Computed example of a mutant assay.
Amino acid sequence: MKLNGILPALVTPFNAAGKVDHDTLASILETQLAAGVSGFVPLGSTGEYYALANDERRQILATVKEVVGGRGTLIAGANGSCTREVLEQVSQTVDAGYTNLLIAPPYYALPSQAELLAHYQTILDTFPDINVVLYNYPIRTNVEVGMDVIAALHEHPRVLGIKESSGNLLRAIEIGEQYKGLQLSCGSDDQALDFYLWGADSWICGPANIFPEKVVAFHRTFTGGDIRGAQEIMRTMFPVMANLESGKFVQKVKYGTELAGFKVGNARAPLLPLTEEEKVEFRRVFEACQG
């Protein structure tokens, strides 16, 4: 399966009572589809996977599947702190009709690279009908999907690619150059242009919740051969990307989604809402980007 285009890392909207707002989620999906995204990634870091109850996860998977249908590629996050928990999450995700999964290293356990490879191999062996996208986000898991793991898995027929969110561009270049069988997907939003220059064809993209038309335009312009035009689009978006990457990413994506017209609520505790000063600064770069 080809990883291609813009794949929004979906926010999880909450209503005033703090419950998942499935109507707003459906509206976000339709808006992003109309903008031309290629698919969706629910239950990732941007979707506050870690803060959701299991029933909420199942309901979100059902809503996304029902609304999108066959109109886009679906890659669901399925993560946990140990192999047993991840297998349970994969099982319920498969039961919900998903075959493509985004899987990061188990957090808190701090597995060695040999243990991490065994973890991924157990998942692949237990579920012979799924495809896996590796997810390298060491700032959240404190464990890197190292080059030894990538070397061992890059030719596996059901390991599709890697969402590289380390912020280390040299690492992304090395993956793209040395492991041609592994599709490279941008997970560092402020480095998207660099990723595309070094061979990425997809962007699993938090900012697509904020301005899907712009990120889709970037992808289409670049893949259409107009690199300078893609650079100009990225230049308009870059202040927002830099603000997002400066801290409080989830809260800022949710606030940006609110500025785009969707009431998605605050992030769940322990994350606190943005201060008024932080909102003013984010709104300033957002409005400049829109202009």
Rank of each mutant, 00 (worst) to 15 (best):
T275F: 09
L160K: 09
G256Y: 12
I139P: 00
T73C: 14
G36T: 03
N79A: 05
M241F: 12
D194E: 14
G224N: 08
G181F: 07
S112M: 05
E30D: 12
N266P: 06
P212L: 08
A269L: 15
S166A: 07
Y98R: 04
A200D: 02
A78C: 10
A9Y: 11
V149H: 03
G206K: 07
L74V: 14
Q183P: 01
G176P: 00
R284V: 06
N79L: 03
G265M: 13
E213G: 06
L169E: 06
H156L: 04
L271G: 02
I162R: 11
C289N: 12
G97R: 02
K163Y: 05
G44V: 02
I233W: 05
E144G: 07
L134K: 05
T257G: 09
R268W: 10
N15A: 08
V94A: 12
V64F: 08
A267K: 06
T31H: 15
E281I: 04
C82M: 10
K252H: 04
I103E: 04
A17T: 14
V67L: 02
V264P: 15
E213Q: 13
G224T: 02
L117C: 03
K252C: 00
E277P: 00
P13H: 09
I139G: 05
C289I: 10
L153T: 05
F14Q: 07
L259K: 09
V216F: 07
A260F: 15
G181W: 07
Q32K: 14
A9M: 12
E232A: 13
K214V: 09
E281A: 14
A192F: 11
Y179E: 04
A76W: 01
T73K: 15
G261S: 11
T24V: 14
I139L: 13
Y50D: 09
Q178I: 03
G167D: 04
A230Q: 11
E213I: 03
Y98T: 03
W198P: 04
I227G: 07
P8N: 06
G39T: 11
M1A: 15
G176K: 02
D125R: 04
G47N: 10
F286Q: 11
L29R: 12
L169W: 01
E281R: 10
Y135G: 02
A288G: 04
L3N: 14
V253Y: 09
N142K: 14
P111H: 00
E56G: 01
T99F: 04
P207G: 13
L272W: 09
D189Y: 09
E245F: 09
T24H: 13
H154Q: 13
V94Y: 08
P270R: 06
Y108E: 08
E155D: 15
A51E: 07
I28R: 15
E144R: 12
T83V: 04
T223L: 00
I175M: 03
V132Q: 05
T275Q: 06
C205F: 08
L182E: 01
E115H: 04
E278C: 05
V240P: 04
G256D: 12
T275L: 07
P8L: 05
G36P: 00
E85Y: 01
